[in-house]
Amino acid sequence: MNKNSKIYVAGHRGLVGSAIVRNLKEKGYTNIIGRTHSELDLMSQQAVISFFEEEKPEYVVLAAAKVGGIGANSIYPADFIYENMQMQNNIIKAAHDYKVTKLLFLGSSCIYPKNCPQPIKEEYLLSGYLEPTNEGYALAKIAGLKMCQFFKKQYGDNFISCMPTNLYGPNDNFDLNNSHVMPALIRKFHEAKVNNEASVEVWGTGKPLREFLYVDDMADACVFLLENYEGEEHVNVGTGKELTIGEMAEMIKKVVGFTGELRFNTEKPDGTMRKLLDVSKLYGLGWSYKVDLEEGIEKAYAWFEENYK
């Protein structure tokens, strides 16, 4: 990419998209474009075609998606599969039709089978049954990465995909009803501290193991792949390190400064018990993460305190 190449970041105000825009600017890229939902409805094929016709982006980062935690994915599976497939179909096809130089599609580690060997290698995709609580979202993301592979195979389009682990950081969704576990707990602990509550509820047993990557590290990996990777296979993005939900909750409790108790609600679902990505492929290309988990939680909590109403 040239520093003045026109780069369209779909979802530029979200958790991942905003971090990618920050990273591109830090690296000296000057021609980055984005559209809010009110300016461009990615669900509308005609609107997307008109946008590509008018702007003719050279590079596309597909970071727009309908996302949520276990609760939202369980309640709205039809919305998750339909909206995500509609958005990505429109953008990937338009990127092909308007001869985009390169497209990066962002998926999620939930695409892998529920009972996957650990750590999870890229080739384990479609080797078993998906986790039922987020099957709709996972199927949409699998379809997206396969579309990128097939457009590359049939037409030679330079479309690549990466699959991040659990992400967190500035511009996250802190809504208690449909957010992921990290931002939900940050908000719970903060409100419990402010209101002098005796305890905080954590969903499940606290025993599942999870891997977390600070979103600015994820953005750095995305730009690295745009600059350096052209393979057909998707690439895992993570830290290669894991801890239990309980351990993470204790870490957030410490950072926030909450002094009460943790209560584990074992009537709530745990989800997949372990989900650690094998990141040897990405690290073999020469990239590695920089922000450790406690430092990342401190950064995320500082952003929450400053910005969240």
Results as ranks from 00 to 15, higher is better:
283 Y>R: 15
123 E>Y: 05
10 A>T: 06
50 S>F: 00
196 N>Q: 08
253 K>F: 04
252 I>W: 02
127 S>C: 13
67 V>R: 08
175 D>T: 05
115 N>C: 10
60 V>A: 01
153 K>I: 00
112 Y>Q: 09
201 E>G: 13
199 S>D: 05
151 F>G: 14
194 V>N: 12
26 E>D: 11
195 N>I: 02
134 N>F: 00
96 H>T: 02
98 Y>E: 00
3 K>F: 15
167 L>E: 01
219 A>F: 02
210 R>S: 03
92 I>M: 12
68 G>K: 10
58 E>F: 01
261 E>S: 15
131 E>S: 11
178 N>Q: 09
86 Q>M: 11
211 E>P: 00
305 E>T: 15
61 V>P: 09
73 N>V: 09
64 A>F: 15
37 H>T: 03
92 I>R: 06
81 I>K: 03
210 R>F: 01
205 T>H: 13
269 P>T: 01
302 A>T: 07
221 A>L: 06
189 F>G: 06
120 I>N: 04
279 V>T: 08
178 N>I: 15
268 K>R: 15
45 Q>G: 11
221 A>K: 06
34 G>M: 10
156 G>D: 04
43 M>D: 14
145 L>R: 08
202 V>R: 02
274 R>F: 03
206 G>D: 08
193 K>N: 04
229 Y>S: 06
222 C>A: 10
204 G>E: 06
6 K>H: 07
15 L>Y: 03
225 L>R: 01
262 L>I: 03
40 L>N: 07
49 I>S: 06
98 Y>F: 07
278 D>Y: 03
185 L>S: 12
267 E>G: 15
224 F>W: 10
161 S>K: 05
34 G>L: 13
302 A>W: 11
251 M>D: 04
174 F>I: 07
113 P>W: 01
282 L>F: 07
107 G>D: 03
303 W>E: 01
104 L>G: 00
82 Y>P: 06
147 M>D: 14
